[in-house]
Design a protein around this nucleic acid. Structure first.
Lengths: 146, 146
DNA sequence: TGCAATAGTTGATATTATCAATTATTTATT
DNA sequence: AATAAATAATTGATAATATCAACTATTGCA
């Protein structure tokens, strides 16, 4: 299996493309609001955070450049799915709030996504998935140390 | 672990970004020829195929649009790393050949990549990696059926 | 001979990423 | 109090990739 080295990125890339292709297809058909995969990911991440969220933190959490996050937030704000709220005590900080529309859109996407993932994981056990995430986290973690 | 659904794409996406970030850094420092991740992936895939390779096949193998593959081939050809050779018996088909320069560039990138992957997989067993690939292939395969 | 299928190409558009530089604000230091 | 350093966000410019439909050239088949 040594020949598997490095093409790991290609194999994983292909898996993601196929998976996202189906997700896009379904969300296009079934969801009312159009979101790109990256917008959906950010909206989801914002929504999941219990404590206050600022842009810089989202950039770190998603492993993206802060200017890339800024543009995604711009896009979500334009669609009225999030709102930037300036911290009363520190005007450098914008808190990110998911609007009612945002919650609605997210609900649709999360439902479609959950259903799809159930289908895509057919034939895989919970132990398999646990090992999968372990590998993903290990590789990511090791990367961040370099 | 149910809350892990769907953000799989985000987790995996982040892993890939971190991994590729390091790979780019190192190839920038150490390799003589500049290749993007996608160019490297395509060059590698062309090189690995034992039988004759045409563009359409590469598109399928990498799960990319044929026009995207075409532009990547254009780019590699411009860098003199591959050559298109028209089939003598069927002028619709271009065979893709890796040039001497291409082999050279590939050798550098594969070495850097292999070394990196060894580091990134530290703490993971072969069984872990086997399960990881099993999951990747299963999800991709299930996606392709939809 | 004409049509269908195949392989590749093109133009247009959309999306995302990256980088450095900049602005505004707060905190720390002198 | 004034200045410097640090922090959060923004901006402009550029590069890369993806997607889609329509198109061209060629081959195979009825």
């Amino acid at each position: 299996m040594e020949e598997r080295n490095l093409p790991l990125g290609m194999e994983v890339g292909k898996m993601l493309r196929e998976m996202f292709r189906v997700l896009k297809k379904r969300t296009c058909e079934q969801a009312q609001i159009k979101l790109t995969i990256e917008e959906f990911g950010l909206l989801h991440a914002i929504s999941r955070k219990e404590d206050d969220v600022i842009q810089k933190d989202m950039a770190y959490i998603l492993g993206k450049d802060k200017s890339a996050i800024l543009r995604l937030i711009d896009s979500l704000e334009k669609k009225d799915l999030v709102r930037r709220v300036v911290d009363a005590n520190d005007r450098r900080k914008n808190y990110l709030m998911v609007t009612k529309n945002g919650e609605k859109a997210l609900k649709e996407y999360v439902e479609i996504g959950a259903k799809l993932m159930t289908e895509l994981q057919e034939g895989l056990t919970e132990a398999d998935m646990n090992t999968f995430y372990k590998v993903v986290n290990q590789i990511r973690s090791n990367s961040e140390k370099i």
